[in-house]
Structure formats: C-alpha cells, structure tokens
Amino acid sequence: QVALSRTQVCGILREELFQGDAFHQSDTHIFIIMGASGDLAKKKIYPTIWWLFRDGLLPENTFIVGYARSRLTVADIRKQSEPFFKATPEEKLKLEDFFARNSYVAGQYDDAASYQRLNSHMNALHLGSQANRLFYLALPPTVYEAVTKNIHESCMSQIGWNRIIVEKPFGRDLQSSDRLSNHISSLFREDQIYRIDHYLGKEMVQNLMVLRFANRIFGPIWNRDNIACVILTFKEPFGTEGRGGYFDEFGIIRDVMQNHLLQMLCLVAMEKPASTNSDDVRDEKVKVLKCISEVQANNVVLGQYVGNPDGEGEATKGYLDDPTVPRGSTTATFAAVVLYVENERWDGVPFILRCGKALNERKAEVRLQFHDVAGDIFHQQCKRNELVIRVQPNEAVYTKMMTKKPGMFFNPEESELDLTYGNRYKNVKLPDAYERLILDVFCGSQMHFVRSDELREAWRIFTPLLHQIELEKPKPIPYIYGSRGPTEADELMKRVGFQYEGTYKWVNPHKL
C-alpha cells in the first residue's frame, strides 16, 4: 500500500502544474464570482478556492472578487462561507491571508454602469489591468444573457486571457439551449467557454479513460460480442427537503440524466481518441451522441416518491408533501431510460440510465454486464461477469466473477477481482471535483468540460421526450421513500436483457 498525506498529494500536483506551459504561476489572475451571495458560491466555490489557495495550487498573485446585487462586505462573505471551509486552528494565518486577497463589488446584473465599476475595481488591483480574468457564473440561467453581454462589453482583460465558467442547466430543451449557446458564442470563442459538469471532475469518471485505453485486457472485450448491457446509475437517499420548488422546474431527467449520466455513457462508449488533447476527446464523445436516436417512450419509466409510513423524519414525507412543490405536480423524481448506440461496436446493446431521489442508498456507478459463458459445464450455477466502476461513495473498480467454492467439488461461487483505489492508495485525500475543474480552467484544459456541439446532441436525444411529458403530463409511478424505485423499472431492465441475480454482496474494501 502507498500512504500519501494531503501535503504529498498537493506537492505532486504542484510539480505537475508548474512543469506545464499552460499554468502561468507568476502571472496575476483575477477570479470573479458572479452571484457571490448565492448558495453555490457559499457552499462550493469559495470553499474550493480556499482549498486550492491553502494547498498552494493557485497562481501566487490571485485575487478573488465577488459580485452580486446584495450590498455585502468581505466580512459578510466570510461569515456565510467559512463554515464550509473546514479550516483547522493551525490554518488561521493562512485564512487571514486568503481573505486579504478577497474583495466585493455590489451591482445589478443588467446595468452597464455596475460592470464599469467592477472593471475599475479590477484595474485598481495590483497589475489588475493586465491580469488573466476568470469569470464564474454562479447564477440562474435567466440572467446569463445580460451578464455575459455586460462582461464582454465592460470587463474583459485587454492583455491577459479571459475565460468564463457556465453552470448547468444549459437551457431547458434543445431550442433554449441553442439560443443560449448562440448568444454566448457570439461574445466569446469556444476556447474561452467552460460549461461545467462537476461529474466530469470526479476521480473515477476520469479513471474510465485510463482503464479503457491503457489496459490491453479490456480492449478486445469492450464491444457487443461480449457486453450484454451497460447500466449507469445515480441514486440519492434523500428527497427534495424543502427545495422542491427549484427541482420541480427541471425534474430528474434535466437535473441528472441528460448531463451526468449521458457524459458517463460517452466515456464508456467512445472510441479511442487520437490523443488526450481536449478536442480529440470531445470529438469522440460527440460521435457517440450522434449514434444515439431520440428516446422512445416505451423505453422510459418515470416515478415519484411517496412517504414511507414506517419511516422516520423526512422519510415519512412524499414529494408532494414538500411545501415548495406545486400542488398535484407530476414532475418525476425517478427515471429509467434505455438508449442504444447504433454503431458497429455497440449495435443492440442497451445502455440503461437510472437516477432518482429518496432511494435506498447513495450511489453513482457504471456497471457493464457481460454475456453468459458459452457451453456451460457447471449446471447453470454460473452468474454473469460484471465490471463495476463505483464513482461514489467509496470509489472502487471491481470485476464480479466466478471462482471455485472451497471444498471437494467443482462448485462455482461469485467473488470479485478488486482493482480499488483504496487498497493501493491508503487514506489518500484526493482533490474534489470542483478543485480539479477550476484548476483545469486556470490551465486552459477543456477536456472535462462540455463543448457546444456535445451539448446540442445531448438535448436532441431528450427534448422530444421532455416535450411529450410536458404536454401529456403522465402521472409518475409512486414508489416508497427509501425503496429501490418503481418495480416497473426493474421490469424494463429485465425486458431489454439485464439479469439481476441478487445473490452477490459487494464487500467494501475500504472497511476491511
């Protein structure tokens, strides 16, 4: 086992960053958080920038500027975001240094004079007029057009580079997404736009490419001749908990499936790229999406959770019991969808996408189930092999396979070949997804960000279904809070070829 401390991990990262040409360590950078008073800024962006600063992973002359409508001070920003920093008493001095680099400007999102004030403020910072500028839009999409237009007109660096990070949702359907994309691309070049999907920053999602293309053993079996089906799962054990009003506007397909799960599907299904260059990788992902037809209604199961009468606390409440959810809402909190990649490698292999709230566990994984062994000599005792990439929690890679049961006879039983990170790298604290992705933006690497043509294809696949749901308002199937979801989803999976045995229990190697 390799035991690495946080300091050692960050030392390795620093070495990698400083050796590259793309990370300008000594240049002045300004990180501007648009929507600095909001939840995302408070819980994710400010803490992430602090962790990067604490670990010495930001360029040395980096300033952080918050911008929002609320009249706040840096002290206010500190008060609301610091509880999420997880700072230790030993880091007190470092924390003071961090907040000394912070400033805040209040202004409207659609007022040109406010942006001119913001620009004057940035120019007044040390070497601010020639600094590289990175704008993070932690804002609702309704203000994107006004904000990007004003940034472009008043706040661009004339000497350094300018980059803009856009948070999902990128529209509600193909038409609104196209409108937003066309607007942003009329102001910024594609190499300046970073559409963030934080799932692409997760260690195991990034590991998929290495697993596939750096190991000879997987190449020959990664196709329709050997793989019976692919299941991509995202499960949350909690409901909307008072935030249903926002969720109800989008629903589970827009929230998770059309982005996170579809991105994971691309990494499983794509061909080997010409290189690890950002556009070479994204070219292959677009090719996969172009091979997927629009979702067919007979390959869809929609569910909505109801309270568990035997549960406790939140578990007793259904989705419609959330006071922020519109009365009688038919918005799905669970969806199972089957897609097919219609190309030579994957023809006929079902890709089953499942996601839901208020389920029995927290889990995100990719599961490849292989065909049955031909010419069975073990009297149907063999179960199908599976390769599982567990994204969260407890990152893991393992192969479910058959071995001989101890004893006199040739009785096979299920076991696993474990390729888990935790076994080799004991207690290594890896940077989280937002840390990686923000560092990628500083480096100018777009590999783990969504390109406009990729986004367009993703919406093309799901828009007809979303429009049909909005028009017909089908009643989702009720499922109990804390269950596996509607049984109809299991029946759909069985119908397209997935075999669920229920006889195997994964042993978490992190707890051995």
Rank of each mutant, 00 (worst) to 15 (best):
454 E>W: 03
355 C>W: 02
324 T>H: 07
276 T>E: 08
303 G>T: 03
507 V>W: 13
290 K>H: 09
353 L>E: 01
302 L>I: 09
406 P>A: 10
283 D>Y: 05
340 Y>I: 08
386 E>D: 00
272 K>N: 06
354 R>M: 01
308 N>W: 07
363 K>G: 05
356 G>L: 04
451 R>Y: 03
452 S>Y: 05
436 R>Q: 07
494 K>C: 14
471 L>G: 15
434 Y>C: 00
498 F>E: 03
361 E>L: 04
445 S>V: 09
404 K>W: 01
262 L>F: 10
380 Q>K: 12
449 F>S: 02
374 A>L: 14
277 N>E: 11
314 E>C: 11
330 T>D: 09
422 G>P: 09
484 R>Y: 03
296 Q>I: 13
363 K>A: 05
377 I>A: 09
446 Q>H: 01
402 M>N: 14
440 D>T: 04
357 K>E: 03
374 A>N: 15
429 K>G: 15
269 A>W: 01
305 Y>F: 11
258 Q>W: 02
424 R>M: 05
457 E>A: 10
441 V>S: 14
375 G>Q: 13
340 Y>P: 00
255 D>W: 01
285 K>W: 02
447 M>L: 11
405 K>A: 14
389 I>T: 05
295 V>C: 13
412 P>Q: 11
307 G>S: 13
397 V>N: 02
273 P>T: 01
277 N>F: 11
460 R>S: 09
416 E>W: 04
275 S>C: 08
480 I>C: 10
413 E>F: 11
342 E>D: 15
293 S>G: 12
445 S>M: 10
432 D>F: 09
277 N>S: 15
412 P>T: 11
340 Y>N: 14
414 E>R: 07
441 V>H: 03
480 I>P: 10
254 R>E: 00
270 M>L: 09
338 V>E: 12
465 L>S: 08
308 N>E: 10
480 I>E: 12
282 R>I: 04
287 K>I: 06
356 G>N: 00
354 R>V: 02
366 V>N: 01
260 H>D: 03
257 M>S: 09
365 E>N: 05
452 S>W: 06
326 P>Q: 06
447 M>G: 03
265 L>N: 00
267 L>W: 02
349 V>P: 03
341 V>F: 07
266 C>N: 08
491 E>M: 12
483 S>Q: 11
419 L>C: 13
282 R>W: 03
345 R>G: 09
387 L>T: 05
450 V>T: 09
366 V>C: 12
269 A>M: 04
444 G>S: 09
262 L>T: 13
329 S>M: 00
409 F>Y: 14
310 D>S: 13
363 K>Y: 00
506 W>K: 05
369 Q>W: 01
396 A>S: 12
254 R>C: 06
405 K>W: 09
306 V>F: 13
396 A>V: 06
436 R>S: 10
479 Y>A: 03
359 L>S: 06
497 G>A: 10
442 F>S: 14
389 I>D: 04
442 F>W: 08
434 Y>F: 04
437 L>E: 05
271 E>T: 05
469 I>E: 08
360 N>S: 08
486 P>D: 04
366 V>W: 00
477 I>D: 12
505 K>M: 09
290 K>L: 05
318 G>M: 05
321 D>A: 10
320 L>W: 07
324 T>Q: 12
494 K>Y: 13
330 T>M: 14
299 N>F: 08
294 E>F: 11
463 T>H: 02
276 T>M: 06
436 R>G: 07
285 K>S: 03
463 T>N: 10
348 G>E: 05
350 P>R: 02
414 E>K: 04
403 T>D: 03
273 P>W: 00
258 Q>S: 07
425 Y>I: 06
327 R>I: 15
351 F>L: 05
342 E>N: 13
313 G>S: 10
360 N>Y: 03
323 P>S: 12
384 R>T: 05
419 L>P: 01
273 P>C: 04
489 A>S: 13
310 D>Q: 10
366 V>P: 04
385 N>M: 01
501 E>I: 10
443 C>E: 10
429 K>A: 14
480 I>N: 11
407 G>R: 04
465 L>E: 05
420 T>G: 07
261 L>F: 05
323 P>V: 13
439 L>Q: 06
274 A>P: 14
469 I>M: 13
308 N>S: 13
303 G>M: 03
289 L>F: 07
271 E>R: 06
336 A>G: 09
352 I>M: 06
323 P>C: 12
488 E>R: 09
439 L>W: 11
355 C>A: 12
504 Y>A: 04
473 K>R: 15
401 M>N: 02
345 R>H: 12
294 E>D: 13
298 N>C: 13
437 L>K: 01
351 F>A: 02
275 S>G: 07
440 D>L: 02
450 V>N: 03
473 K>N: 11
311 G>M: 13
271 E>L: 06
311 G>A: 10
497 G>V: 02
261 L>S: 03
328 G>I: 09
432 D>A: 10
484 R>L: 00
253 I>S: 02
455 L>K: 03
369 Q>E: 02
490 D>K: 07
404 K>T: 05
341 V>G: 02
383 K>H: 14
398 Y>D: 03
495 R>P: 03
273 P>N: 01
426 K>W: 09
296 Q>D: 14
422 G>Q: 13
284 E>T: 07
440 D>V: 00
421 Y>V: 07
467 H>L: 10
423 N>Q: 12
308 N>I: 08
471 L>E: 15
361 E>N: 07
459 W>R: 04
378 F>Y: 10
342 E>G: 13
398 Y>V: 00
327 R>L: 13
379 H>L: 09
432 D>C: 10
408 M>F: 15
493 M>C: 14
357 K>G: 01
260 H>V: 03
434 Y>N: 05
286 V>A: 08
276 T>Y: 00
264 M>P: 00
506 W>R: 01
361 E>Q: 08
339 L>A: 14
354 R>S: 03
464 P>H: 09
336 A>T: 15
474 P>V: 13
274 A>S: 14
386 E>I: 00
292 I>N: 04
479 Y>F: 05
443 C>W: 13
394 N>F: 09
451 R>M: 02
332 A>S: 11
282 R>S: 04
398 Y>G: 00
377 I>L: 14
323 P>E: 15
406 P>W: 05
403 T>N: 13
378 F>K: 00
396 A>M: 03
442 F>T: 13
273 P>Y: 02
300 V>M: 14
501 E>H: 13
259 N>Q: 05
320 L>H: 12
302 L>F: 10
265 L>S: 05
368 L>H: 02
367 R>E: 04
427 N>M: 11
395 E>A: 11
388 V>H: 01
344 E>W: 07
